[in-house]
Structures are given as C-alpha cells and as structure tokens.
Amino acid sequence: MSRRYIPFLLFCCLVLLLPFFLRGAYHIHILILTMMNVILTASLRLILLSGQMSLAHGGMLTVGAYTSALLVLKASFPFWLAFIMAGLFAFFLAWLVGYPFMRIRGIYFSIVTIFFSEMTVLLAQQWEGLTGGSGGIYNIPRPDSVHLFGVKVLDFSSRTGFYYLLALIMLATLLVLHLLEDSRFGLTLKAIRQADILCESFGVDTTLYRVLSFAIGSFFAGIMGSFYSHYVTAITPEAFGFLFTVYILIYMIVGGEKSPLGPIVGAAFLTLLPELLRPLKSFTPFVYAGILLAIVYFLPEGLSGLILKWTERLGRGHA
C-alpha cells in the first residue's frame, strides 16, 4: 500500500464515522443525497475524460430506477440482483446508443444526450402499462437486511442502514474510477480528448474507447437510480429531469474536472450549502448560478484546484 492512498483511507474513516456525530434522520438523509451526488458527478467525469460531455446521466438514472423497481415488483427479483441489473441495463443501453451518438462531437453530442434524457421521461410517462404513467411507482420494497454469519449487519428499516450501504458503494466507486483513470485506459481517454485523429493514427479505436467510457459512467448512474428508488420507495418520471443533470454538471465544474478530487468537493459543497443557507433555500438555482459564474471567472480549475494548490504550498513549506 503506497503512501498516496493515505488521504483516501482518512476519507474512508471520515465517511464511516460521520453518522456517530450526526444522528438526526434529516442529517443522515442529506448525507445520503450528498454521497449519491458524489457518485454521479465522479462517474460523469469519467465520460468527460474522453472529451465528450454527456447530459444523459439523468436519463440513465431514470432507466436504472425503473428497471430495478419493475424487476423487484413485477418479476420479484431480490434487491441485490435488481441493483446490479439496473447498472448493467444502463451500461448496455449506453453501449447501444453510444455508437450512433459518438459520431457526433462536442456540443452536438451533448444536445443528443439531452434528447436521450427527455426521451426516458416521456417513455416513463406514456408507457402506462409498464411504468404506471405520470403517477410513477409507489411502495417499492426496501432492500432485505444483510446477515453475515447469522448476525444482522445492515438493516434497512432506518436511514443509517442506507447510509452505510451507500457509503460502501461510494468508496468502491471512487476506488474503481481512480483505478480506471490511472490505468492505460484512462491515459488513452485523456489522449483522445487532446487529439483524437492522432490516436486513430496509432491504432486506437477511439469510438470504442468513447463508447466504453460512456457505458461505464452510465453503469454508475444506473445503480444510483436503483438505490434511489428503493431508498425513497417511489419513483416518478420527472424525478431526474434535465435540471437534475445540469446540477451534476455544475457540481463537476465547481469542484473542478481536472482532478478526481473535484467531484467529491463540488458535489459535497453544493449539496450541503443550501442546507447551511436555509433561508435562501428557495433561491438555490440563483445561488448555484452565482457560484458557477464566480468559479468560472476566478477558479477555472475549480475548488479542488484551489485545495491542491494549498496543500502543495503546505508541502513545500515543510520541505
């Protein structure tokens, strides 16, 4: 275990110990939303590594939420299987639409992915026989409790159980995304972003890499959709509309997309901020817009860029 994993281990401890200090159900709820946003932002960043800005994340969440809820309710799948299936379904859907989508570059790709997200909303509203129409699906069962060696380890009758499940998912997700980015796969994605025709000329199948990053990123949106539907025990077509996807994008820009730290900082900051500014909560979109503008002007590398600069300066001070 090398030294660069120490910050990550400290972060693990913080996440696992936090419920002992913040006991209120509402606090736990906010922390759960924060961790969901961290996962969504971090997985969106993986797609962006190849230079394509996807706004299909909201759609993939809807897909994952409905897949999981329907599998459990109509096909009586256990939650754990439905959870994985939701991710895999989002993965394969992204793979399927990824090939035609990736023929389009830049802003046009983003526009097509917005259409994808809106399509899922419309489909959920109109396909009443399957999805229950605009009323959505209610009474989605909570996950079964987890027993290890006959001892109940995780119990989902309280929010704390959900907290620990999501904490484990988040830590695993961040680790996997880091390994991906740090591998040759990640290096190639970043190369494609800088000069894709050059990559082609070396024998890199740039379309395959782009589709893969899109599908892997969407997998995480799919499992988050599943988690959400079983946590809230209900899902409506508009739960993850366009605005929701744009929020994820704002978390990433405010956190900074250059560093893997960015999504954590950005999502945590902007999810917790409205809670700290309770009187301003109904003005959240304005607050976000103001922060976004300030970041773009003064901190183009985001909050994580600022943090990294500070720690670097500290490190040099000690040396």
């Binding site: 040759r184 796969f185 290096l187 190639t188 190369a191 990559c199 070396f202 024998g203 890199v204 199948d205 395959l208």
Partner: peptide, 11 residues
Amino acid sequence: LVASNLTAPYL
C-alpha cells in the same frame, strides 16, 4: 506510451 498503445485484450 499512448502511441505504443495496448489493444483491447490488454485493457
């Protein structure tokens, strides 16, 4: 390193 890329099986 990017130029001497590993193809899919090594991914």
